[in-house]
Amino acid sequence: MDTAARPAFRPATAADVPALLALIQSAYRGDDSRAGWTTEADILDGSRTDADGVLEVIEGENSRLTAVEAGGDLVACCQLEHRGSYAYFGMFAVRPTLQGAGLGKVIIAEAERFAREEWGVAEMRMTVLSVREDLIAWYIRRGYTRTGVMSPFPYGQERFGRPTRDDLQFELLTKKLG
C-alpha cells in the first residue's frame, strides 16, 4: 500500500463481517499479529471479538463501524459510538504489515473529525488495557489523556479472549475535540 495515498473510508456493512473479523483478529491475536506492534498475543489468547460483536456495532443505532480500504483491499477499521456529549472510539485495527507507516494516525484523525463534525461531540473516549503502555503512549502522542479511571476486564467471557494473566483492566483515555 502506498501510505502517502489517502485511504478510502466507508461505513461497514453486514457483508463485511467475515473480513472485518479476520482483520481485527490478525491485528491483536495469534502469530499474525506479531508482524505489527499492537499485538496482545502475549497477554490474551483466543478471539478479540466475534461475528455477533462486529455485527452489533455495524447495526447499532448510535454506532458506526468504518471500513478503511486502500487499493480496494480492507486494511483497517474503527468503531465510533455516539454517547451524548462524547463519542466512544474502539475496535481499531490496522493490518499488521501496515502498522507503523502512519495509517493509524490518518484513521484516528478522520474518526475525530467525523465525531466532531457529524455528531457535534466535544470529546472522544476510549478504553485501553492498562498494561499496554506502548499503545497508551501512542494515544498520548495523539493528544489523549490518561484518566486513571479503570474498569474490569470481562474475565470468563471468551468472546473477548482468554487472559494469560490476572491483572488486566481497562483505563479510560479522553481527548477534547476542538
Rank of each mutant, 00 (worst) to 15 (best):
G102Q: 07
G120Q: 14
K176R: 15
R34L: 15
I136H: 09
T66L: 02
I136F: 01
V57P: 02
A115Y: 03
L80H: 02
T174A: 06
E158G: 12
G143K: 08
A76I: 01
G156K: 08
V131L: 08
D42F: 00
E158A: 06
A4R: 14
A93T: 04
L74W: 02
T174M: 03
Y144G: 04
A4F: 13
D134E: 15
R6Q: 13
G90C: 06
L80V: 05
I108T: 11
Y144P: 00
V131C: 03
W138N: 02
F89N: 00
G100Y: 00
R132I: 06
L65A: 00
C78M: 10
R83F: 04
V57S: 07
V106M: 02
Q99Y: 02
G53Y: 06
G178N: 11
F170C: 06
D42M: 11
L55S: 05
Y86W: 15
G46K: 01
S130E: 15
S63R: 05
M126N: 00
F160W: 06
E171V: 03
F170Q: 10
G148A: 04
T38R: 08
L65R: 02
L80A: 03
K105W: 12
A67Y: 00
A137F: 10
L103Y: 01
M124N: 12
D167M: 08
P96M: 10
R146D: 09
